[in-house]
Nucleic acid binder design. Structure first.
Lengths: 345, 345
DNA sequence: CTGTTAGCGCCTTCAT
DNA sequence: ATGAAGGCGCTAACAG
């Protein structure tokens, strides 16, 4: 039988309350007494039963998730994962609220953060936009003791506690590697379609992609980046224009969302399967395009993992606990049509 | 505040004990009373607090893991993950024992399963070998109400409750896709180095690989499979012979372990970076080879995920609960040198 | 500074 | 067939 607080109390010759004070390093214990208790903990090899502790505490964690609105499939999937987490709220002692804001609008995001602040949650998860007013709003939350985690897109240099998302520079590098190797010695330039340079994840991916193309496939021409605002209609127009302007276009790297438009443009131009396409995020559309051969490779971040990690970290930070970084790392999944998980999505 | 057993008891006008009987559908409750309680559960929207239930029950789960001995890095990493899980035993109410058996030895494995049976655990996780005596031993465990999960390598057609591992046919297909595309129109045959055709995972990978090479890259010659018994020294000898016999060898697909030997042979022959290599499992050796360019792509199964999933499933099955298949799916990770997680391993 | 006492939500004898 | 009472391991008032 593993030792309990009672055993420690007996071993150390003190009361339960004192043991509890030491365990939760609360004040009001003489150093000598503390030592005795810690000694007992050590010799008995005590480890606290977290479930029992939570039961006794009855603590809950009000959490707020802020994410962009719009028809971006990835973001809607992310929201679905947050909703799935609210279902588990009972077991996890969380109370999750979702706030949606217009995409790529720093002002609106800052206001949502202020609104979240008013509600006094234990923590806030936010899909960030890099802008001074957002950074400032995050700082105010942290100054008030509210934990903040950035989700999917980071806000480096801010006061946020943690970033729950992938290494987007590595993602861009991987995209570059696949593009370069898949193209081999085939002729023609490569285009890049991003969502917006306002968000850090897109900027990071671009940086990684350009670095690999430059360092490893230096002879390949890279066209200037075009920004589709993660909007399918705009993306379609832009890609159609690219195909038109560059009949020998060999590849397209799609950094953000709007893959529906990208695919439509390729198909209408009769270039599906001819131009090598590397894109991001597994959605119903991108899955179909991968299977049909219009998209050659898909880099994905698992929204479910990100949401669950964000919740774990927010709870830990709210309790002032450290997190094990390695355990919270989100991986970049690479999907070819051959290793696509059969599941839904 | 969510409702508790007390609320149900009050609402139904019965005692706590009766509510408990209904909740755990134990006998000794009149149908009318049962109905009243179920009605109350329904109207109050009660969901039981599993943590509290476990605390009260004090139930633990004795589990046995059976895995191959030897210097196979992947298997040692797997064992390390099991050991890591034993550390979490306290919180998870598990008591894990590890049994190691000689690799690729069906007789020894069957005996280990019998030994596990004698110890009467709640569940057994086993890295399987496909053989009648193993299938029979698994059946005896199941017939005795002990949950069985195959780990890494499956035993299809047996009575096992679940397989905690990747879709190895898909893994083989992915390897084929990458090999074919990376080689492009470069000349030369492709060799396959397996561990043993006795284990299902190797057979499945081979099947997937051959299918894609045949269907999508039909002009590429495939050499007959050689078996290295997951042994580095033997693998080195075999690969050296292959290189010798086929000066124009374009690619090698390494299905199993022994990558150390593979890499050594390539380096000694001065073929490192020239022959396209796709291999499995991220270990200290394969990581180094990927970074140096000797290995071009690495398919990986996350041993930690597999072990944790196996434990979750064993506990659930031991309690007679269903598992959510989608949640327990283990993914195939693809690593290029650009998306290698920076961590240890 | 330290100890006593009463729960958290659930399960389990033991009576009735 | 049903109920009362005590306890799982921990925390949180409230006393002293």
């Amino acid at each position: 039988m593993r030792p309990t607080v009672h055993d420690i109390a007996a071993e150390a010759g003190v009361s339960l309350a004192t043991v509890d004070r030491v365990l939760n390093n609360r004040p009001g214990v003489r150093a000598v007494t503390r030592d005795k208790v810690e000694q007992a903990i050590e010799t008995l090899g005590y480890v606290r039963d977290v479930a029992a502790a939570n039961l006794a505490k009855g603590r809950t964690y009000p959490l707020i998730f802020i994410m962009p609105a719009g028809d971006n499939s990835f973001m809607r999937g992310l929201e679905a994962e947050v909703r799935a987490a609210t279902v588990r709220s009972a077991a996890e002692r969380t109370e999750i609220t979702i706030l949606t804001v217009p995409a790529f609008n720093a002002q609106a995001l800052a206001e949502a953060l202020a609104e979240a602040h008013r509600r006094q949650p234990a923590g806030v998860a936010v899909v960030a936009i890099e802008a001074p007013e957002v950074t400032a709003a995050v700082k105010r939350l942290r100054d008030d003791g509210i934990a903040v985690v950035t989700l999917v897109s980071d806000l480096p240099g801010s006061a946020r506690d943690h970033f729950a998302g992938v290494d987007n520079v590595a993602a861009g590098r991987t995209a570059g590697s696949l593009m370069g190797r898949f193209l081999g010695n085939r002729e023609g330039p490569v285009a890049v379609l991003a969502g917006s340079m306002l968000v850090r994840d897109h900027r990071d991916r671009l940086e990684g992609f350009q670095a690999v193309m430059r360092d490893c496939f230096g002879t390949r021409a890279l066209l200037p980046v075009v920004e589709g605002q993660d909007d399918a209609a705009l993306a379609e127009k832009l890609v159609a224009a690219l195909i038109d302007a560059h009949p020998d276009l060999a590849g397209i790297y799609s950094i953000g969302a709007g893959n529906r438009g990208l695919v439509a443009a390729l198909e209408k131009a009769g270039k599906a399967g001819t131009i090598c396409v590397v894109a991001h995020e597994l959605t119903a559309y991108s899955r179909a395009a991968l299977l049909s051969g219009t998209i050659d490779a898909l880099l994905n971040q698992d929204a479910g993992h990100e949401v669950r990690s964000a919740i774990r970290v927010l709870k830990a930070k709210a309790d002032g606990l450290a997190v094990i970084a390695a355990q919270e790392r989100i991986r970049i999944d690479i999907f070819l049509k051959d290793n696509l998980p059969s599941g839904q999505v």
